[in-house]
Simulated assay, not measured.
Amino acid sequence: MGYFFRLLQLLSTCVALSLVASENAWIADVSNWSMFIWCFCFVVTLLSLIVELCQLQEKFSWSWNNFLITYTCFSALVCLSASIMYPIIHLQMLSYGTQWNHAIAATAFSCIASVAYAMEVVWTCVNTSVSCSFIGLLKRLETTVACAILAFISNTFLYMHHPALVWCVAVYSICFILGVISLLLYQCDCDDRLPSSHFVFGQTMLAVLLYTTAAILWPLYQFNEQLGGNPQRSRDASCNAGYSVCIWDQQLAVATLTAINLLIYVVDLVISAFQIFFSLEISLPSDIL
C-alpha cells in the first residue's frame, strides 16, 4: 500500500505541473507557489520511494516512519493549499480554451495528490507505532498556516512598496524554514545527537518575537491611510475589476493568518517552557530542592 500511495502521489503531482507548464498556463507571481509545491512534492516523494526500494532507511539514525508521516502530512496540507489557491486566483486570469482546461485538470490532479498523501498518513498511523504529540500537532499547524501565508504573499504587489512589509515577508519565510527544521527534529528521534527540545523552544521564542513585529507592521502599513495603506476594500481598484480575491482581500487574509499563527506560537511557547521547566525540576538533586 505504501508503494501504491507513492506512485499515485508521483503521478498526480507530475501530471499537475506538466499540465500547467505544457500550455503556458502559468502566470508569474500567481502560479509560482503552486508550481513549487508540486515540484517539491514530486522530487521528495521520488527520493523517498527510491530509499524504500533500495532499503536504505535502515542506515538512517532517525526513525524513517516518523519522518515519513511528518512529510506526508505536510505534503497533504500544502497540496491542499495549492488546490485551493491555484483555481481561485489563477483561473479568473485565463480565457476559456486549452489553457483553462489544463488549469482545471491540474487542479483536479492536485486534489488527488492531497487525498493520496492524506490516505498515506492514515495508513501509516494505523499500521505503525507512530504517535503524534500535542507539540507535534502544533508544529504541523504552524507550518500549515505559514504555507497559507506564503501562498498569499506570492503576489509581490502586496509588499514591495515598503521595506517594513518586506521585513514581514522575511519573518514569514524565516519562521517557516525554522519551523520545518524543528518539526523534523521533534518527530525524527534526533534527541541523541541534537538538543532538539531546547532548539524547538528557542525557535518558538524567536518565532513569537518575529511574528509579533509582523502582526503589528503588516496591518499598520497595509490598512493605515497615513502610512500609505488602504483601510477600505471599496477603494481597491482590483476589487472593482471583478476578481474574486483582490489585493485587499489578500492583505486582510495575511493579517488574519499572522494573528492566528502568533496565537499558536504563544500556546506552543507556554507548553514548551512548562515541559522544559518540569524536566529540569525533576533532574535537580533532592538536597537542592
Rank of each mutant, 00 (worst) to 15 (best):
T156L: 14
A118K: 00
T156M: 13
C246I: 07
E23D: 11
V130M: 06
E23S: 12
A146N: 06
T212W: 03
I260V: 12
I112D: 06
G136R: 05
I276Y: 01
E142F: 05
F74G: 01
L252G: 05
R140F: 15
N101L: 14
I149P: 02
E23K: 10
C239R: 04
I149G: 01
V267G: 05
V121L: 00
L217K: 07
L269G: 08
L47F: 11
T212P: 00
P87A: 02
Y117N: 07
F223R: 05
F223D: 02
T72H: 10
V115T: 08
C79I: 04
H198F: 14
F277L: 12
W218Y: 07
Y243G: 05
L138C: 15
T156S: 15
L184N: 06
V270T: 10
D29W: 10
I247K: 08
W38R: 09
V126G: 03
E281V: 09
I153Q: 00
M205V: 15
P231F: 04
I174K: 08
A106V: 00
N66V: 06
A170Q: 13
I276K: 01
L49V: 06
V200G: 04
V245C: 09
S154C: 09
M205N: 13
L206F: 13
Y265G: 05
G202M: 08
N240L: 14
I37A: 08
Y211I: 04
N101G: 06
L194N: 07
Q275Y: 11
Q275K: 12
